[in-house]
């Protein structure tokens, strides 16, 4: 971890729906502007975080803990620290996803349909992690109005997919009118069938931004199935070694 990369890059935060916003003025009113802001504000140079994923399914509850590093728009690395998967790593670089397992002598590269598999049996798929944050390229946004969500005023925006290559044809987002945090999101099929629901339970402040620290993701098609994502710490713009995100380095 030596050099500080000065180039301004968009960070795609590795774990799904943790969208980060800077406080901003309330002048943005069109749906496109709100979404653009939401995407724009998901901007980090680098980050380091620790947290856990708690998954509940028909067999009970299990918790995995992780450390995660990210850099720029596309690079991220997650290392699991919980006993059951200690040492396993997931590396995402531009366009590819690699899995590293301590007992395997080669990396497993996931692509295509294999990315649709669930990560650690949770309601999050590998694909959810690799989702590009260019929302407006793939979705048409319509501002439905404003609505209070847990005492917070939110814009309610419906996103309708303009391409078939995204997982969720319809998304409904509740975005904080002040800090652009997505408090709640509903993911549906084109026919409006609710598939997944995300809700932010608590927030934390880091680097002057309000971000979700505890999120619940529910698979609405399965009863008693949900995933809690918890962020214990987040370091914004730490100095990271660029080599972290290389294949050679994955095997340390």
């Amino acid at each position: 971890m030596c050099k500080h990369d000065k180039s301004k890059k968009h960070l795609l935060f590795p774990l799904l729906l943790l969208l980060v916003f800077l406080p901003s003025n309330l002048s943005a009113v069109s749906a496109e502007e709100i979404i653009q802001k939401m995407d724009e504000l998901a901007t980090f140079e680098t980050s380091y975080s620790t947290g856990s994923i708690q998954t509940k399914d028909r067999f009970g509850t299990k918790t995995s803990t992780f450390n995660a590093w990210s850099q720029g728009e596309s690079d991220s690395l997650i290392e699991f620290t919980s006993t059951a998967e200690r040492g396993q790593k997931i590396l995402r670089t531009k366009g590819s996803l690699y899995l590293f397992y301590p007992d395997a002598e080669e990396l497993i590269r996931l692509q295509g349909a294999a990315l649709r598999q669930s990560m650690l049996g949770s309601d999050i798929s590998y694909e959810d992690m690799t989702e590009e944050k260019n929302t407006l390229d793939n979705y048409k946004a319509v501002l439905e109005g404003t609505e209070a969500f847990k005492d917070t005023m939110c814009y309610v925006i419906t996103l309708t997919a303009t391409t078939r290559s995204v997982a969720y044809p319809v998304q409904k987002l509740w975005i904080d009118t002040e800090n652009y945090l997505v408090w709640k999101a509903q993911y549906s099929t084109a026919q409006g069938r609710l598939l997944k629901e995300m809700e932010v339970l608590s927030t934390l402040e880091a680097g002057g931004r309000v971000i979700a620290s505890e999120t619940r993701i529910e698979d609405k098609m399965k009863r008693d199935s949900h995933t809690y994502m918890r962020l214990d710490s987040l370091e914004v713009n730490p100095v990271l070694d660029k080599k972290i995100f290389t294949l050679e380095n994955l095997t340390w």
């Binding site: 649709r116 694909e127 078939r164 995204v166 969720y168 044809p169 098609m221």
Partner: peptide
């Protein structure tokens, strides 16, 4: 209910 991925990858139920 069948939840499937359509041609392109979108979810459909």
């Amino acid at each position: 209910t069948l939840v499937a991925r359509g041609n392109g990858g979108f979810y459909e139920a």
